[in-house]
Design a protein around this nucleic acid. Structure first.
Lengths: 338, 338
DNA sequence: ACATTTTTCGAAATCGTTTGCAAAGAATTT
DNA sequence: AAATTCTTTGCAAACGATTTCGAAAAATGT
């Protein structure tokens, strides 16, 4: 074991372990000269304090957990990027956990982390999560917790999200203004907060303009082949949609695929607008009109709030909601028929 | 502090701490009856062993680190997904670190982790990494380490990658067969192993067929605006490329953007094929011919090998290389001019 | 010169778990 | 019956850093 630890440093310097520890933590009760001696040797030997010993003693892990449904998703990747823009400067480490949209996994992960492994968690709930007891249990035990994007507004916990309903309204309004009258809403099956907010925006736009056919709410899944089958059926109805508002990027892709198969040209026969953080949306055939969420900012701000709670600079009750606005980019997929 | 620990369990059951510990770890030297008593109370009180204490005592963290250049990249997202398909069943946790293609960050992260925080690391080096001492130092200290995709073949460390040169050859050959004679190679600046392998495949295809103009090696960066400027210049040369082989997905996107601006229709004026793990490549205008890497498998296999090393089931010298083949999907961006 | 404060450092306890060793009792063998 | 194993449990020492407490040494005040 050539591991260098405090004891070895102390022996080498003829000092007590406690002195070395204090010197490295820049304690005021150590003279500048000894501090310098200690630091020099520590640097020379490449001393790195054992994090488990520190964590055990100080009862803090300098680690946070990020729990998300999936990672093959631009939105969540960008969120992680945003989180990582904060953590290193705070000296924190980031554990990643994937629920794969499975409530049981989500519950188990939260249970697994109830032992001091992390100082706080950031979570975006799975679409199969209907019971929020596991999250509330975490909150009640006083552990720092922040929800983002897929939030649970009924819980007394900080929520960082975008203006889903407003943007859904705008997207639907956009389709209406481009002449659509049979507008379908493609939402995620389950009881997700974002789906509900986006659905509400969609409905209120239809309500306000009163020119369109009744709402068509279509619930899709995480499985492409199921979605394609369902959309196939939808686009063969006599009241076939002439406009599609996809609440999830993947569903817009599914729509493109099915429209291509059914030879329904976009935007002539069907116009499409979607929540999406895909950089390449502008290169689609046709270019996809998107609502871009500030994913990076959501991650960054969620991390900032979590650290405020961890550092006790923010106590309950916190400012519960933080809403970062999205942006609607109009492209060819919702162009007027020429 | 309502935290339940071994001491509390022991007191409650009138047992020694060591007995409780052994009972929970299902040691053979504890009677079935006491085991049952202990387990029952542990479950009732929701006991979770403190991981820092365990890690300190056992000198293992049950954690691995994944170090990648960036996360907003389908390839790396899919790799992480593959890694995560292995870790939970092993009882391991995954820390994520981003180097942002910065050698200094990469070096610092490796240094930071030299203290037992993790039991092993998986790394894909940044494109600014020319010196591999930091990686070799890690290897020399006997810490389990696996490289994937962006490897350092000169190091005596397991490398998990795809058949880059072969696929680059095929892609270039594909362009040649579709009539291209001025084929440009878009590679990442720096001295990345994958860039070199892909470049070699490109060159050997040109060499073999001898029908094309001399190689045009264009080195791009991580910054879109720089790439676009450079490509603008390239496509205005008198010897303008009629075929582009992009070694990185992002560069294909840049090419599409510039060709659109310059009104150079793909595939008529320029044909494009690219390494890419973008699901939506088929929806591009025109659909992009891609070389799809088995990213998920790379992550999974890299993790499997790392765990073999960690569990000492595999000792040096290991099987050094593992090569998982990619797949060329021909689409409209390399179609014959009609 | 003596009393008091301040500076600097060391000894030891602590965090919670694991584990080598000892010991007591039960079961088995000689 | 004595000697031996085997089973089951407890005691105490780790692991490495932090921190409380106290002591010696130095600086300051009277």
């Amino acid at each position: 074991m050539d591991q260098v630890n405090l004891k070895k440093l102390a022996k080498e310097l003829n000092l007590a372990v406690s002195t070395v520890s204090r010197a490295l933590r820049d304690s005021h009760e150590i003279s500048p000269q000894t501090k310098e001696r200690v630091r020099e040797l520590a640097l020379k030997l490449g001393f790195q304090p054992n994090p488990h010993a520190s964590s055990l003693r100080q009862n803090k892990s300098k680690t946070i957990a990020v729990i998300i449904p999936e990672i093959e998703n631009n939105f969540f990747s960008q969120v992680i990027n945003g989180i990582e823009s904060v953590t290193p400067s705070k000296g924190y480490h980031v554990l990643i956990y994937l629920t794969h949209e499975d409530y049981n996994k989500e519950r188990d992960i939260l249970q697994l982390l109830r032992n001091g492994r992390v100082d706080g968690i950031m979570i975006s709930v799975s679409n199969t999560t209907t019971n929020t007891d596991h999250i509330d249990a975490w909150r009640q035990s006083g552990m720092p917790l922040v929800l983002f994007d897929r939030t649970c507004e009924e819980l007394d916990v900080p929520n960082i999200m975008t203006n889903d309903a407003e943007m859904a309204f705008k997207a639907t309004e956009h389709l209406l203004k481009r002449g659509c009258r049979q507008i379908a809403f493609l939402g995620m099956a389950g009881n997700l907060s974002i789906s509900n907010r986006r659905k509400a925006g969609y409905l209120s736009a239809l309500e306000k303009y009163k020119v369109a056919a009744p709402p068509q709410i279509i619930e899709l899944t995480t499985k492409d082949y199921i979605n394609r089958d369902l959309l196939h059926e939808v686009f063969r109805r006599e009241s076939r949609p002439d406009g599609v508002f996809a609440a999830i990027e993947k569903f817009a892709v599914n729509t493109y695929e099915v429209c291509k198969e059914l030879k329904l040209p976009i935007p002539r026969e069907v116009k499409v607008v979607s929540f999406s953080n895909l950089q390449a949306a502008a290169l689609f055939d046709p270019a996809l009109s998107t609502i871009i969420q500030p994913a990076y900012d959501i991650g960054r701000e969620a991390a900032n709030i979590l650290f405020k709670i961890i550092e006790k600079k923010m106590l309950m009750p916190y400012e519960k909601k933080m809403i970062l606005p999205s942006q609607l980019i109009e492209r060819a997929s919702t162009a007027i028929n020429s």
